[in-house]
Structures are given as structure tokens and as C-alpha cells.
Amino acid sequence: MEKKKTDMKAIVRAYGMIFALILIIVIFGALNPRAFLSSTNFWNITRQMAILCIISLGATLIMSVEEFDLSVGNIASFSGVLSALLAISGVPFFFALVISIILSAVVGFVNGFIVTRFRVMSFIVTLAMGQVIYGITYWLSDGAIVFNGIPESFKVLGTGKFGPVPYLTVLMVVAIIVFQYLMTRTAMGRKLYAIGGNEMASKVAGIKVKTYKTIAFTISGAMAGFAGVLLASRIGSASPTGGDAYMLNSYATIFIGKTLFREGIPNVLGTVVGVALFTILANGLTIMQVPTFVQNIVTGIIIVFAVVFQKMGSGKNE
């Protein structure tokens, strides 16, 4: 009997969030099947997921080494504004994209360098760096939304489709595959998880902890920058605060993801489920014409539940 009971707990813990996801789909599907369960809405949801997903994947790397990058939202805003301004000044979209990603990666690298070189808390360093980036973004944009003179070519990637499939969806799927491969099937993924598990032991075992942490920060910066450009491209304008909200949401999805598949460890598939949960909830509530503030309340409650679930299930933590 005892055995069975713990098994139930383990199942709730491991798959609780997937049940929650299914439950949400069933509820919305029952309430408004025509709007919610349409194929148009399916592709719409995947497109809505893409930007949050791309930021969250980068941040998953950071979380896997037990650090934080709280500047990802600001980096996304910065990158969106920068790419829009470049596009307006006549730079072809591809180059605007690449330049923005590279500069975002540099910001990530600087974050990582400061954190590892001076052994300071990433929490506070990246928070401060976020302020710096915010200031620069404001300066670049004069504090206004950049939209005047953005060429149509800039909007293709964010709004275009292959048949019914949005480009953003394709990009997201590619990113998920690459990150899943990176984290589970490469030496680097192994090392990141080892560092997250026990930094000191990893160092003693000869892993270059500082180097790999810095790489994680750099990738996270690049992904945030990429997402920022996609956001600007999708909306067709760039706000100096457009990406800021993604920071908190991305960490929420990672925390939800941590409860899945690999207990207590950030993992790519878990993050993806977290992103889906978030996005579907927002989508469904919007279709139901629930005001935005209620959406905030509901998503907040879900995050709290996710964290409590994880603790509750694992007796070890008591």
C-alpha cells in the first residue's frame, strides 16, 4: 500500500503540469469549441508561444547552472529597438537581425564574465545590467515606440507563413530541437548539468566551470536578442519596454518545467510545456473575453501551484 501511495505522489509530481495543461485545453474546448479548437487557433497559439519559448530556452541554460539572467527582458527590448532602427536606416533585415543578436550575445558574455570572474551573484549583476540596457534602449529610441518607416521586409519573418504554418512556429520548433539536442546529447549539456548539480565537484573533476557558465550567459543573451527582433518583426514596431515582461514569464515557465520529466532540474521539454501552458491559458482567457488582470491573477496562481506541487511530492526536501 505504502509503495502505491508514493507512486501516486511521484506521478502527480512528474506529470501534474501536463494534467493541468490537458485540463485547461478540455475546459476551454468545452466552453468555446468553435473558436478555441479551430486549426487557425492552433497555429495562432504556436505562433504566440514562439517568442516566449525562444527566450525561455536560453534562460533554461542559465538555470541549469544555478544562475539567473534577469536582463533577458531588457535585452529583448534593446534588440527589437536596435533592429528596427537599423532597418529604418536602410540596413537589410538579415544584417539587422545578425547585428542585434551579436550585440545581445555580447551583453550576455559581459554578464557571464562579471559573474564568473568576480564571483558575484548573477541575480544582482544581471538586474543591474538590465537597467543599463534599458537606459541604452531608451536613449536609442528617445523613449518612444519605433514604427515610422519600418520597411515591409522587416515584418516578413514575424508575420509570414508556409501555408498555414507561421514562420515563427517553424523557428520555435527548430530551436527546441537544437536545445534538446544540446542539453541531452552533447558534452556541453552534460557539463552544464554537472555544474548545476555541484559546482565544486565539477571544478575538481576538471570541468572549466567559468568558461561554461560564460557560454551559457552568452547563449542566453543571444536568444533574448533573437526573440526581441522576432517580437518587433511580428508587431511591426519596437517599444523600448516591449520585451520586459518576458523576463518574469520565462522564469515562470522554467520553474513549471522543472517540475516535469527530470525532477527539480531545468530541462528543455519541461520548459516547452511551461510555455504551452502559459500561452494556452492566455489565449483561452482572451477568447473568453476575460480581462487581462484576471489573466495575471490566474497565471500567478498557477506558478505558485507548480512550485508547491514540486515540494509537496518530494519527501526528501522535508
Binding site: 558534452a187 557539463k191 555541484n198 575538481v204 573533476a205 570541468i207 527539480g264
Partner: peptide, 24 residues
């Protein structure tokens, strides 16, 4: 526990910790 093993990882992951690169 503090300086040798990554307690949360598997036996295999701990055995190959110093030599991961050679499998690439």
C-alpha cells in the same frame, strides 16, 4: 559529497565527469 560527486546525477554521469570530452 561536496567536492567529488554530483549527488543529484547518475552513477554514469559521475563516472564520466572528468572525461566527457573524449566521447565527442
Amino acid at each position: 559529497r561536496g567536492h567529488s560527486l554530483v549527488i543529484s546525477r547518475s552513477v554514469k554521469d559521475n563516472i564520466v565527469l572528468s572525461t566527457i570530452d573524449k566521447y565527442v
